[in-house]
Amino acid sequence: MVPRDWIGGVLKPLVFVVSLVPFAWIVWRAFANDLGTNPIETLNRYTGDWTLRFLLITLAVTPLRRISGWHWLIRLRRMLGLFAFFYACVHFLTYALLDQYFNLPEILKDIAKRPYITVGFASLLLLIPLALTSTNAMVRRLGGRRWQRLHRLVYLISVGGVVHFLWLVKSDIREPALYALILAGLLGYRLWWELRGATRAAGGQA
């Protein structure tokens, strides 16, 4: 058993800092003029990748906790989810401010017309209520069950993120396919767990 204060006092701050490293790294590269030939594309893709990675890392907490028995992992989940939201916001800002240069009509047209942007934008919007209800006070106000039901939206958001990626590539789907596979594993595990739970419960009643 890991001591409680060790998690709050050491592990959490450590994971916080580590989660900021990708952001710090790209800011560093931006200032060092090292974003390659197409800097905006680099920023946009980099932040998109990290958004999806943090979503998947967040989704990995529960399976990992069940398999390993490290129940303290759950205490990192909220922060990881908020980092997914953070990177999603930065990703959106690189698109809206740098790529589209505040051109609101063009942005709205993109959201309405381009399916991959529509899906990405929907995923970002759906992340907002989850971020807003991530505080302890909100969990209490909503009640555990309702809170949990709301936060299941993250499954939909992650599927949205992967579909967004699949729909934006020109022809080489290998990278988004890899993310899709990982996501399928993470969601599949949950399904298996639920089904197993259901059969156990049924078995117990008999």
Binding site: I40, E106, K113, L168
Partner: peptide, 23 residues
């Protein structure tokens, strides 16, 4: 005439249009 997945109205000139300029 847009590509179905992105607009063709504007372009970014490599090496000239910096981080903070419109296409």
């Amino acid at each position: 005439v847009d590509h179905p997945r992105w607009s063709q109205a504007r372009e970014r000139r490599i090496g000239e249009d910096g981080l903070f300029s419109a296409k």
